[in-house]
Each structure stands twice: as structure tokens, then as C-alpha cells.
Write a protein that binds this DNA or RNA. Sequence first.
DNA 1: GTTCTCACA
DNA 2: TGTGAGGA
Length: 123
Amino acid sequence: MRIGELSKRTDTPVRMLRYYEARNLIVSERLHNGYRDYDDYVVDRVRQIRGLLDVGLPTRIIGQILPCLDSPITIHMPYVTPDMVATLEEVRDRMAEKIECLTKNHTAIGDYLRAAGFDAEAS
DNA sequence: GTTCTCACA
DNA sequence: TGTGAGGA
């Protein structure tokens, strides 16, 4: 697919998609006319990138982490810088907080629905 | 109509 | 990262 479609499917500005590519976060082939051509798996890749970005990971670090999250899980850690470790720990903790918060609200809403007699949802 | 690259202050 | 120029 071309960049316009990828943009729609991932809800990411075309501008940012080219930016991610410049940062080596995603790759693309080139059509005869020079247009970028993306494989379907890139859609999930971009969503994963957006997810990491949302939690505060800079593209700089995502570029080093992403290869480790690829299909054949290659735990290849070339150069792990101290600041990279620090950033990851911080992000990991922030995610834990977010998960805890979500779990709490998930439970609360489930309880409410059940109490109101509208449940049917698996907890 | 779509995408491309380069570059700005 | 938004925006515009100038091409193909």
C-alpha cells in the first residue's frame, strides 16, 4: 500500500510516517515512480510505535528496542547505554501505573454494570 | 489527485 | 512537527 493508505489505516499523519522511516523505525519499498510501498505488517508496526510513543519513549530509543520485539525474538543488545536503561525503567513503571489504574476502573465499571443489572460482560 | 524531497526561522 | 515550494 502507499503512504496515504497506511496513514488512514494507522491514523498517523503522512508526515510522521516519513519521519519514522528516516529514524529507521519502519521500512518501505519503492514503486517505479518513487512512491513508497508498504507491506501489510507495517500497519501493526506503526501501531506499536505509536503505542510506545504515547507512553513517552523517544523515537531514538524505539529504534533500538523495536528490533528486539521483532518476530524471531532476537535478544540482541548491541550497545545498551545507561540513559536508555533509565528511560526504559521509567516507561515501564509508568505503564505499570497505567495498567493498575485501568484495572481499577475496569473492575469498578464492571461492578456498576452488575449492580445495575446490565451485566453480561465477562470480568 | 497523490506523493516526493528539501528547507524554513 | 507544520507548512510551503517545485516536480513528476
